[in-house]
Design a protein around this nucleic acid. Structure first.
Lengths: 223, 223
DNA sequence: TCAGTTTTTTGAACGTCGTTCATTTTTCTC
DNA sequence: GAGAAAAATGAACGACGTTCAAAAAACTGA
C-alpha cells in the first residue's frame, strides 16, 4: 500500500505528481515527528494524535501513508539503523589492526547507544503486533550491521572458514550489544561512562586474545 | 500500600486474618494468571480485564492488592528471576573447573530463555511508566544473578581485585545475555539450537582463555 | 444476636489509545 | 467549468488502564 513510490519527478504536471510529492513529504514529516517523540519519551511516547499534530495533518492521514503505527516504527527503526551504520563507518585511511578496529566499532556502538538511547532501545524493544515477522527490507538493514564486524574479524582469524566467521561476527556483535544494553539499563545499578567503556574493552580484548590463542601453555581439553 | 503483610497466622480468628489471607490468595492468583498471559502472548497480552476474569475477581480488585499493572509485572518478573536462579543452581558435588562452570551457567541461561521465552523477554522489555526507578527489592533479585557468575570467576582469576571482579561478572553475564538475546530474536535470521549453543561456547571459552592469558607470544601493546 | 461502624469489594464510568469510515475537499479528465 | 475520481478529514468506535461512588462484608460493643 505504501511500498510503491513514484520515482519519476521529471518535467512538470504529471498526473498525481503533486499528490505523491505531498505523500512523500507527509511520510518524512511523520517519521521526523515520530523519531522526536521516541527520542523524548521512548516508544510509549509515540501517539497517533500527537504525531498528527506535530506533522500538521489529520490523524486519519497517518493511515494514508503508513499501514499502521508499527509500520511507521519500522521506518523509524530503519532510519536509526542507517544513522548507526553511518556513525560506525571507519576513517578512510589504511585499516588498523583487527583488534583495534573491533574496539573502535564497539566504542562507536556504545557511543551511539548512549547518544540516542531511546531510539536505539526502540530497535530491540519493539515487537510487531501478533508476532508477525519483520519485512525483508528491515532484515537487510540489520544484516549490514553484522557485516561491519566481519571485515576486521576476517583479518583477525584468516584461517576461520567463512561460514563460521559470519556466525562469529554475529556472536561478537551480540556480546557487545549485551554489555552496552545492560550497561545502559537504568533498571540496573548505573555504571559510569568510563567504567562501561573499560568493561567493553576488556570483553573485546579478551575475546580477540582468546579467539586467536593457539595452545601456548595449557589448553583445557574436554573429551 | 501493599507492602505491609500480616505475618501473624497463629491461633484462630484474629482480626483481619481472613481478609489478609484472601488478599494473599488473590495476589497469588493474579500473579499466576499474569504469568500465564505473558507466557502465552508476551507483555502485550497482559490485560486487566482478562486478569480479573482468570483470577475470578472484579477489575477493581487488582488495584486493591497491586499499585498498578506495572507493580504486578514487577512481581511476575521477580518470580521469573527466582525460577531462573533456581534453574541455574549447580549440582551439590565438588566445584568443577571455573571455565566449565561458566559454560554450565551460560547453557543454563540459554536453556531457561528458550523454555520461557516470553517471560524471560518481559524481564528486559518492560519499562516502568514515566521512567520511574525500579524498587530496591527488584534490584536485589537481579543482583543475585550476577553473583552466580562471581564464584567461578574468582577461581578463574584469583589475582583479580574484588571490585574489578564484580564488574567483570556483570560484563560476562551481559555478553552471554546479548548472545542469547539476539540469538533468540525472531526479528533476526533464526539460529538452530545447536548453532546457538556452539556460539555461546565459543564466546565463553574465548573470554575465559583471553582473560587468563598472560603475554605468551605477542601482546598487542598500544601507546 | 443485632444495630452501628469500618473496611473491603465491586463494576459502571472516565479519559486515552489505535484505528476506521462516511463525509468533505481536492485533484484530475474532458 | 462540470462531472468523476482520488485523497484528506475528524467524529466515532471498541478496547485499554484506572478510578470511585455505591454495595457488600467484616468487625465491634451491647
Amino acid at each position: 500500500m505504501n511500498d510503491v513510490q513514484k520515482t519519476e519527478s521529471d518535467s512538470v504536471e504529471r498526473p498525481g505528481a503533486k499528490t505523491s510529492a505531498r505523500r512523500a513529504d507527509l511520510r518524512a514529516r511523520l517519521v521526523a515527528a515520530g523519531r522526536a517523540a521516541i527520542a523524548e519519551g521512548g516508544l510509549q511516547n509515540l501517539k497517533a494524535r500527537d504525531l498528527a499534530a506535530a506533522a500538521g495533518c489529520a490523524v486519519g492521514a497517518i493511515y494514508n501513508v503508513f499501514d499502521d503505527l508499527d509500520d511507521l516504527i519500522l521506518r523509524i527503526g530503519a532510519d536509526t539503523l542507517a544513522r548507526l551504520e553511518h556513525g560506525l563507518a571507519g576513517a578512510p585511511g589504511p585499516a588498523p589492526e583487527p583488534a583495534e578496529e573491533l574496539l573502535r566499532l564497539s566504542r562507536g556502538y556504545l557511543s551511539f547507544a548512549r547518544a540516542n538511547k531511546a531510539l536505539w532501545r526502540a530497535l530491540f524493544e519493539h515487537r510487531l503486533a501478533g508476532g508477525r515477522p519483520a519485512p525483508a527490507w528491515y532484515l537487510e538493514d540489520q544484516g549490514r550491521l553484522f557485516a561491519l564486524v566481519e571485515a576486521p574479524l576476517a583479518r583477525l582469524l584468516p584461517d576461520e572458514p567463512a561460514a563460521s566467521r559470519v556466525l562469529l561476527a554475529r556472536t561478537l556483535f551480540s556480546a557487545v550489544h549485551g554489555v552496552v544494553s545492560l550497561g545502559l539499563e537504568e533498571k540496573l545499578a548505573p555504571m559510569s561512562e568510563a567504567t562501561l567503556e573499560g568493561e567493553l574493552e576488556r570483553l573485546v580484548r579478551a575475546f580477540a586474545a582468546g579467539s586467536t590463542a593457539r595452545p601456548c601453555g595449557e589448553a583445557s581439553r574436554k573429551d
